[in-house]
Design a protein around this nucleic acid. Structure first.
Lengths: 146, 146
DNA sequence: TTATTTTGAGACTAATTTGTCTTAAACCCG
DNA sequence: CGGGTTTAAGACAAATTAGTCTCAAAATAA
């Protein structure tokens, strides 16, 4: 079951990496992250550019440059990241893909999906990067595949 | 948020259509369903072949042929359909796509995702086609986009 | 200034998913 | 038998997502 695209997944892993390993405002090079997280450097660069354009990150070129969060990790929620990458309507879908599905014209899965979808959205909306960063650095939870 | 592939979605809609519109054992032509559900005939044919090969459907060629459920709609659960189309491990995924993610080596989203994923799996495992078919035929819930 | 490091932008390729088309096989009916 | 209807099988094409590569631009440092 693939809920998030690779682009979203790589974004989230990179951001949590920054939070877990760097002081706020400290630049992290994309090269370092691509190695540590085992993600293609060029692909990660392209993806993070979107986050920079949307002002979630700031970037700086040249030696000791890189990217950094544009605001405290407590103030960036997973939903902010996902909506930039996947689009604003990411959580507005019908499970069966029917246009116009809603309370007035529900598909057979509508009631169930509304509950499940909302639970996911709430979780993403209420989880700041700081929470995941803390777990990774304090409890040594995993961020890469090995 | 795309949870199910088009192939799964089309499968589910077709099966629920059969339940809602036909007697058990009565053949429904794929052509009829492709028109009613606004799904490409050839694509739907290809997808339903998988369900036939896995004995969820039986098919019959020639005039007044088509496909029919191979057992009562009460005994076919959404999870059966989805696992045929998407694969047996559809509900075994990590949200961040990390290999080996599990209780002993969790990713930062593991705890949340385990709960959400299990809820989805339970819903799919406990919902028979008959339930959705009844909703569609009795309460006129929607199955197509218009 | 020049070499080096790093992100930015965009063209290009590869993989996967989705969709189309053609031909064959099974079946019915006159 | 012969013609029409329907699924079966698989080649093929289009669309989407994922990933690669090259070169430019900005910054640092010697």
């Amino acid at each position: 079951m693939k809920v998030l695209s690779k682009a979203s997944v790589y974004s989230l892993r990179a951001l949590v990496y920054i939070v877990a390993h760097k002081q706020h405002g400290e630049y992290v090079s994309i090269g370092e992250m691509s190695k540590e997280l085992d993600i293609s450097f060029h692909f990660l660069t392209k993806i993070l550019q979107q986050l920079t354009q949307e002002k979630l990150l700031v970037s700086y070129r040249g030696p000791r440059g890189g990217v950094a969060l544009n605001k405290p990790a407590e103030e960036i929620f997973l939903i902010d990241v996902v909506k930039i990458i996947e689009g604003e309507h990411f959580f507005d879908t019908c499970l069966l893909g029917l246009p116009g599905c809603g309370a007035s014209e529900p598909c057979p899965m509508h009631a169930f999906w509304t509950v499940a979808r909302t639970a996911m959205e709430q979780e993403f909306a209420n989880t700041p990067l700081s929470e995941l960063g803390a777990k990774v650095s304090e409890d040594r939870l995993r961020l890469s595949g090995w």
